[in-house]
C-alpha cells in the first residue's frame, strides 16, 4: 500500500481535508454537513495517513507537542520562571531548542483527551442556559455573522464538540487497530 505517490498525496491532502472538514462543520447549520460529517471527513484523512504511514508516524506528525524547559534557578521567583518558560515555548522555539541548558519534552496528545474535550464542549454548551435559569441546552446566539462560518451560538459550540469527539474516536479506533 505504501507507495511514495500515495504517501505524498496524502501529506498534501491532509491539510485540505482538514480545512474542508472544518468548513463542513460550520457550514452544516445551513447546508448539508455538520459536526458528524465534518468530523468524519477530517478523521478519514488521518485514517488514510495512518494506513499509509503507520500509527506512530501519524502521532508524531500531528499529535505531538514539543515543550521546552530548563530547571528553575534557586533565586528565581516562580511567576518569573513561568513567564520565561512561556516565552521559550511560544516565541523563541527554534533558537532555544539548540540551547544547551534546555531540555525538551514531547507531549503526546492522547486521543482520549480529544474525546474528553469534545464531550466536555458538547455538554458544557448546554450549561449556559442551565446556569441562567433556563432549561439545559437553551440556545444563545450572537448578533453578528462571521463570514463563511456563519452565526456563532451555543449550538455551534455543541457541533464543535461533536466534531472533536468524532475525530478523537476515529483516531483512537484506527490507532489501536493498526497497532494490532
Amino acid at each position: 500500500m505504501k507507495t511514495i505517490i500515495l504517501a505524498t498525496a496524502i501529506r498534501i491532502l491532509i491539510p485540505l481535508f482538514i480545512i474542508f472538514s472544518v468548513y463542513t462543520l460550520f457550514r452544516g447549520h445551513n447546508h448539508p454537513g455538520g459536526g458528524f460529517i465534518g468530523g468524519l471527513i477530517g478523521s478519514i484523512a488521518f485514517v488514510f495517513h495512518t494506513m499509509t504511514h503507520g500509527p506512530q508516524h501519524t502521532v508524531d506528525t500531528f499529535l505531538k507537542l514539543n515543550l521546552y524547559g530548563y530547571p528553575r534557578q534557586p533565586n528565581q521567583s516562580r511567576s518569573l520562571y513561568l513567564m520565561r518558560m512561556m516565552r521559550v515555548n511560544v516565541w523563541r522555539r527554534r533558537k532555544m531548542a539548540r540551547h544547551p541548558e534546555i531540555r525538551h519534552r514531547m507531549i503526546r496528545i492522547e486521543s482520549v483527551y480529544i474525546i474528553a474535550t469534545g464531550l466536555f464542549l458538547a455538554a458544557t454548551s448546554g450549561m449556559l442556559g442551565l446556569l441562567s435559569g433556563q432549561p439545559y441546552m437553551h440556545a444563545y446566539w450572537t448578533d453578528f455573522y462571521i463570514p463563511v462560518l456563519g452565526k456563532p451560538g451555543t449550538p455551534i459550540l455543541f457541533d464543535v464538540g461533536v466534531y472533536l469527539l468524532v475525530i478523537g474516536v476515529v483516531l483512537k479506533i484506527t490507532f489501536v487497530m493498526s497497532e494490532e
Binding site: G126, G129, Q134, P135, Y136, M137, H138, A139
Partner: peptide, 8 residues
C-alpha cells in the same frame, strides 16, 4: 411530576 424541556 417535574419536567424540563431541553433547549426550551
Amino acid at each position: 411530576i417535574r419536567t424540563t424541556q431541553i433547549g426550551s
